[in-house]
Structure formats: C-alpha cells, structure tokens
C-alpha cells in the first residue's frame, strides 16, 4: 500500500550556495532518478515540490513564504520529505546538452553528477553571485546577464551556438519558463530531442488531485512529469498560461 506521508529527517548540513539559494542535506538517502522531486514539508508551515539535487539533498531559492521558512532552518532541525515522485530524465543517445537557468541549475547538477552520458553544460543566472554548483558540470559554459562571469549572454544564445556546432542526441533543461520557451524553439530548429523539467502549482504530488494537470492532454506535472518532451510541450499550455492555487488561469 502506498505511503505518502512526510517522513521527518534531521538537517545534517546547510550550504549557502548564493545570497538567495541554500542547499539542505538531510539524514536519509533516497533512491532517485535525476529530475525527480520530493514534497518538502516545513513542519507547521507548508509543503512544496523541490527537485532533488542529490540523494540526500535539496537546493532551494528563497522566493516565498514556504521557502523563506525553509531558509530559516538550521543544522539539526527537522524537514519532512515524501517521494521521490515523478518521472525524472530518461534521455536517448549519449551526447547530451544540459541547460540550467537560475535555481534550475540544482536538478541539472543531479543529472550531471549521476547521469551516465557525455554531457556538455550551460548554466546561467543574472549575475555571478547567483551561479553555483560550477564544479559538478562537465564541459561547462557559464552565462550571466550582466557579464560578471563567463559570457554576457542568455543560456539560450549559447545553446543555439553549441547545437549549431556539434551534434547532440538530446537537450535536458530546467529553468525559468521564459528560458524554456526560447530553448524549445532553438532545440526544435536544430531538430534535437528535448527534455525539460516543468513546474505547475502542486497540491498532492502523487497525481490524484489533478491541480497540476495541463491543457490539452491532462498530463500531470507531478506524476507524468515533471520532465516533459516535445510531444507534451508542443501545442500545450506551457509557455502560454498556468493555473494558480485556486485553479484560476494566469497568463505567462
């Protein structure tokens, strides 16, 4: 019988990756596929989906109430974990281009570290302060909006160039939806299979409440995803609109 109850584990380490991003290590090792996520319970506050950056590790940006409460937790405190959930990256071929934008760098680190492929990597953020996990990415290209590190360019511009220069079997990516929107067009132009880690408002995390199901297929981000391929992405609500906590449509 399925158990979908948060299990609380002590935080064994908190690493400040950037001024806004922290990694939390917890005292339990999960058997996971890179790209899978866990529901992280901040006891007494809220529970949010977070992609794993390692088997005992989540990496979270402080963006709202739940993540702010999580960022206040210290080594020795408890967090609740249920999962891993979702599909994870299942990539064809061997030569794979990784693209990670902002806190989307975190799940791509798990892929770079544990995936069995020949990776080339692009990670990007607004500024050098927000780049992290540099040492985990093979063949790394760093991009910043302000040019404070690596190329002064969007990740998508570098992706377009690399896909033009070399033959890749797949593009795997996570980042802001606007980045993925342009990356979709670029991967499509170069005719390379794409696998993007997507996000929608989640409640149950196990595919039964239906809240994160997308139009028009009813593909559930939590259960059928979060990694979507071209067939799911094309002609879908992705890059156009999403639904908020109430289920009301919000334009992107």
């Amino acid at each position: 019988m399925p158990t979908n109850l948060p299990q609380t584990y002590r935080i064994t380490d908190v690493i400040e990756q950037t001024p806004t991003v922290k990694t939390f290590e917890f005292a339990h090792e999960l058997d996971f596929i890179p790209g899978q996520f866990v529901m992280v319970w901040v006891p007494g506050v809220d529970e949010i989906p977070v992609s794993l950056s390692g088997p005992s590790q989540i990496t979270v940006k402080n963006v709202g109430e739940a993540t702010a409460a999580l960022h206040k937790l210290k080594k020795g405190n408890f967090i609740g974990i249920r999962g891993p959930y979702g599909n994870g990256f299942a990539l064809p071929g061997y030569k794979v281009l990784i693209v990670g934008g902002g806190v989307g760098i975190a799940p791509m680190k798990a892929l770079a570290q544990y995936g069995d492929k020949d990776f080339t990597s692009i990670i990007g953020a607004q500024t050098s302060d927000e780049i992290f996990f540099r040492n985990y990415f093979p063949g790394l290209h760093v991009c910043t909006d302000d040019g404070s590190e690596g190329e002064k360019a969007f990740t998508t511009v570098v992706a377009d160039r690399l896909l033009g220069e070399q033959k890749f079997d797949a593009v795997a990516a996570c980042g802001p939806e606007i980045m993925l929107k342009f990356l979709y067009q670029i991967a499509d132009k170069h005719n390379v299979p794409m696998f993007f880690s997507m996000e929608r408002w989640m409640k149950c995390g196990i595919g039964i409440c239906g809240h994160c199901a997308i139009d028009p297929t009813g593909w559930r981000v939590c259960k059928d995803g979060p990694v979507a391929d071209k067939a799911i992405l094309e002609n879908s609500e992705f890059f156009k609109y999403k639904r908020d906590m109430a289920g009301t449509e919000v334009k992107l």
Binding site: M39, E47, C204, I206, C209
Partner: peptide, 16 residues
C-alpha cells in the same frame, strides 16, 4: 468565488 484552499500537505496516505 476564487478560493485557494488550504496550505499543503493537503493529501496524505498510509496503509489503507
């Protein structure tokens, strides 16, 4: 009217 519902966790299961 629009309503967000309760904070998570909202659905849990164990055993039966």
């Amino acid at each position: 009217k629009p309503r967000a519902g309760n904070p998570n966790p909202t659905i849990i299961s164990f055993g039966d």
